[in-house]
Computed example of a mutant assay.
Amino acid sequence: MSNYQINESYEGYRSVDLEVRAASSSPYQLVLVLFDGLLDELARARGHIEGKRFQQKGQSLEKCMNILNGLNSALDYDNGGETVQGLSRLYDYCIYRLSDVSVSLSLEGIDEVINLLSVVREGWEGVNAARA
């Protein structure tokens, strides 16, 4: 089995797993599913940069930016106050940094985004646990 076939099989498995997890999730759990997928894809993009697989790097970073845009558009701007405004600015900043990483290939830049989003994911995990 070639690396391409293995990658395609894994992508199919991941897609089905994501659909199953999303279908059975509360809104808070769904945000965690999105963050898990985002952090996985960021790690993959980092690996593509290290491996000089630039086409795959671009695809991974595009997926990451799309997820961030989705998270941003799902924020409740009417009722969220300063917290929502802060999250929106953070998501916009991460998109900006990933755009820069796409050109600069900066591992430090992608690590910064991974660290920032890991902290936010932990916060969502705490909110989900408090609501359970």
Rank of each mutant, 00 (worst) to 15 (best):
M1N: 01
Y4L: 01
S9W: 05
Y10Q: 15
E11I: 09
R14S: 11
R14L: 08
S15W: 03
V16G: 00
V20L: 11
R21C: 11
R21S: 11
R21Y: 06
A23H: 09
A23N: 13
S25M: 03
S26W: 15
P27Q: 03
P27D: 13
Q29S: 03
L30S: 00
L30C: 01
V33P: 05
V33K: 15
D36S: 11
L39A: 07
E41D: 12
A43W: 08
A43M: 15
A43G: 13
A45I: 00
A45M: 06
R46E: 15
R46W: 04
G47E: 12
I49H: 07
K52W: 00
F54S: 12
Q55Y: 12
Q55N: 10
G58E: 05
S60G: 13
I67N: 10
L75C: 10
D78I: 02
D78W: 07
V84S: 15
V84Y: 01
Q85T: 10
G86N: 15
G86S: 14
S88C: 14
R89G: 07
R89A: 13
R89E: 14
L90T: 09
Y93W: 06
C94Q: 05
I95A: 08
I95Y: 05
Y96W: 04
L98S: 05
V101R: 08
V101C: 06
S102K: 05
V103F: 10
S104H: 04
E108C: 04
E108S: 13
G109E: 11
G109C: 09
N115R: 08
L116W: 02
L117R: 07
V119Y: 14
V119A: 15
V120F: 06
R121P: 14
R121F: 02
R121M: 14
E122R: 11
E122T: 03
G123R: 07
W124V: 07
W124G: 13
W124C: 10
V127W: 01
A132V: 01
